[in-house]
Amino acid sequence: MANWSDPRPTAARYATGAGTRSDAYDAGLRSYMLSVYNYMASGVLLTGIVAMVFALSGAVGSLVDMQTGRMTALGWIVSLAPLGIVFAMSFGQAKMKTSTLQALFWGFALLMGMSLSTIFLVYTGTMIAQAFFATAAGFAGLSLYGYTTKKDLSGLGTFLIMGVIGLLVAMLLNAFIFQSGVMDLVISILGVLIFAGLTAYDTQKIKSMYDYVAGTDMMGKVVIMGALNLYLDFINMFLFLLRIMGSQRS
Rank of each mutant, 00 (worst) to 15 (best):
T118D: 08
G43Q: 07
L101C: 14
A55K: 00
Y37P: 00
A41Y: 12
P82E: 08
M96N: 05
F105Y: 15
M96W: 12
M66D: 03
L104D: 11
G92W: 15
V64Y: 06
S35C: 03
T47M: 13
A88Y: 13
R70I: 00
V78D: 00
G69H: 01
S99Y: 09
G48E: 05
F87H: 14
S99Q: 13
S90I: 03
K95F: 08
L45H: 03
G113M: 07
V122A: 05
T100M: 14
P82S: 05
L80E: 02
Q67P: 01
S62C: 02
S42W: 10
K95P: 00
T118W: 08
L63W: 02
L74W: 11
S62W: 14
Y123C: 07
G113Y: 09
L104I: 12
M89V: 08
T68N: 01
S90H: 12
L56M: 09
S62E: 11
I128Q: 02
L46I: 15
G48L: 10
T126R: 07
I49F: 06
G48H: 08
I85H: 09
A129Y: 05
I49E: 10
G125S: 09
A88Q: 13
M89P: 07
L63T: 04
G107Q: 04
K95N: 14
V36H: 01
K97I: 08
A109K: 11
S79F: 12
R70M: 08
L45W: 07
A81I: 12
M89Q: 13
L83I: 09
G125N: 10
I49R: 08
V86T: 11
F108P: 00
L56W: 06
V64L: 09
M66K: 01
A94Q: 14
I128R: 02
L34V: 09
L83F: 06
M33F: 13
Q67E: 15
T68K: 04
L101I: 10
L56V: 06
G92N: 15
V60F: 04
I77H: 01
M112Y: 07
A88S: 15
G43S: 11
N38P: 00
P82M: 09
S62N: 10
S42T: 15
G113Q: 06
T100N: 14
F87Y: 14
T72S: 06
T72H: 05
G58S: 03
L56K: 06
V36T: 08
M52L: 13
M96E: 09
A129M: 06
M89G: 14
A41P: 00
F91Q: 15
F108W: 14
G69V: 01
G113S: 03
A41R: 06
M89H: 14
M40N: 04
A103H: 10
G84F: 08
T47R: 12
G43I: 12
K97G: 13
L116C: 06
I85R: 05
L56C: 01
A129T: 04
T100R: 13
L45R: 05
A94I: 06
V86S: 12
G113P: 01
T72D: 00
F54K: 03
S99V: 12
P82I: 01
Q67I: 01
